[in-house]
Nucleic acid binder design. Structure first.
Length: 459
RNA sequence: GGUCCGGUGGCGGAGUGGUGACGCAGCGGACUGCAAAUCCGCGUACGCCGGUUCAAUUCCGGCCCGGACCUCCA
């Protein structure tokens, strides 16, 4: 399979050629665990999970690393506000994060490194950068010296003057150059800190990722580095500077991928507007699978407008797809590979809208199929294609009957269906329709098919 | 100001130098006791103005509108 990836470094699609096809490596910037994840945090998780699934289809050994940032000033603030140690905050929210992302169908990454377990790697890397002349100590801080790296600005296509002109924060007096950024900063006694050659302190944000990549994937070139669009500058630019300079100029990552942002009902999601949607809350309103489909319904590089209508539509789409699968419930799938048209869509820079269109085509063919062999093939294709998107792996009946309201139970539904069947047998249409309406009023929809009556929950 | 991305039918959203992806909603038909589901069909969409071309929504130029980023926000 030939995979095309839009490489931010080149600003164009490129053929994906891994450094070593036997060991494909991907690193994605993960969460800072101090709060519930919002829908914007979920997009890269779902997008790169889909890429992970595709890569696994194409390569035997894909090492996907997604970090957990468990040292951060926002964590410190949350711990202080709640009067608990930072570990209490980070463990709590990491656990919630893992649950919520699993509910969205995201596979766990192969490696999930934590910053607190990589302090040695961080200080080691900083020491090398100082020895190389790329970093320096000043007033308890260690800073990366940006002018020492000629390529700085290549990823974000900024030149130094712009960066300085655009700086919104007063330049600290100890910086040699206004663009220099912090690798290590001192910690007062009331904040978490680790002993280092530069005194007790904690790592800057950017160095964490460089060090975790180095410790988990080595000092060689990684294949894919991903994250949100906003991370291009400064975070990824700085990672490139740190890792390239610490690795003797070796290429850091072959491909850089960035997902677009999520807006909420056409507005930017922000705390000040008060429209931040937490995955944890959305999961109470809709199945994780519907949320996932909604996130995959636009191409990953485009902005995604999150709306209630969009979520409803995602649910309706899944109803249709699961109904097709339900129609094949007695069929044994005969293939385990998605059709080429579907794979081609995903392999074209993860074109999930096109892949979804192909999925609907398969469902349509499945609904029409009468030949047993064709049904068996289509069922296999539906399941295999669904797996690549992280969809359609539930029992169709479980999806269609899943959210039965507490005020009605299955026995009662089935008793009413039996009563209706009897009424229909004696052509008592008034009674038959009365029962159907009664169930509909309680959110249960009936479908008469081939002499049988199926029911499902209205979505 | 700099860097970058968009403007496609009622809605979402792909894509393409020349048969209107796909889904949701709607309408008509088949099926059904009637429905639902399913299947079939329908809607003359490509921001504006020029240019290139036999042909542009698709390429080029200009304009208008919207959005993102510009030192720690996915």
């Amino acid at each position: 399979m030939q995979i095309q990836i839009y490489n931010t470094l080149a600003r164009q699609k490129e053929l994906f050629v891994p450094q070593d096809p036997q060991r494909v490596t991907m690193y994605v910037c993960g969460p800072t665990v101090y709060n519930y994840a919002h829908i914007g945090n979920a997009r890269p998780v779902v997008v790169f999970d889909t890429l992970y699934r595709l890569l696994q289809q194409a390569y035997p050994n894909v090492i996907y690393v997604r970090n957990v940032t468990d040292v951060d000033d926002k964590i410190n603030a949350a711990a202080k506000a709640q009067g608990v140690p930072i570990g209490t905050i980070t463990e709590r929210y990491h656990a919630i994060y893992s649950q919520d992302m699993a509910a969205l169908g995201a596979l766990p990454p192969r490696i999930e490194p934590k910053v607190t377990q990589h302090i040695g790697a961080i200080t080691g890397m900083i020491e090398r950068l100082i020895a190389n002349g790329h970093a320096y100590e000043a007033e308890g801080h260690v800073l990366f010296n940006v002018p020492s790296f000629a390529e700085y600005g290549r990823l974000s296509r900024r030149d130094r003057d712009d960066m300085i002109a655009g700086a919104r924060i007063d330049v600290a007096p100890y910086k040699r150059d206004p663009a220099d950024f912090v690798l290590w900063k001192p910690s007062p006694p009331d904040l978490p800190g680790w002993d280092s050659p530069w005194g007790r302190g904690r790592p800057g944000w950017h160095i964490e990722c460089s060090a975790m990549i180095e410790q988990n994937l080595g000092t060689g070139t990684i294949d894919i580095h991903g994250g949100g669009h906003d991370l291009i500058f400064p975070h990824h630019e700085n990672e490139i500077a740190q890792s390239t300079c610490a690795h003797g100029g070796r290429l850091f990552s072959r491909y850089w991928m960035h997902n677009g942002f999520v807006n909420i009902e056409s507005e930017k999601m922000s705390k000040s507007i008060g429209n931040v949607l937490l995955v944890h809350d959305l999961l109470k309103q809709a199945p994780g699978e519907a949320i996932r489909l909604a996130l995959l319904s636009a191409h990953y590089r485009q902005p995604l407008d999150w709306t209630e209508a969009g979520l409803r539509e995602a649910r309706a789409q899944l109803d249709r797809l699961y109904r097709a699968l339900d129609g094949l419930k007695d069929v044994k799938p005969s293939v385990t590979r998605a059709p080429e048209t579907f794979l081609a869509a995903l392999a074209d820079d993860l074109n999930t809208p096109r892949a979804l269109a192909e999925l609907h085509q398969i469902a349509n063919a499945a609904n029409k199929a009468t030949d047993a062999a064709e049904k068996a093939r289509l069922k296999g294709e539906l399941l295999a294609a669904g797996w690549l998107l992280g969809l359609l792996q539930q029992d169709p009946a479980a999806w269609l009957k899943g959210d039965v309201n507490a005020d009605i139970d299955v026995t009662e539904i089935e008793a009413l269906i039996e009563a209706r069947k009897a009424a229909r047998a004696r052509k008592d249409w008034a009674e038959s329709d009365r029962i159907r309406d009664q169930l509909a009023a309680r959110g249960i929809l009936l479908e008469d098919k081939a002499g049988q009556t199926n029911w499902r929950v209205a979505s």
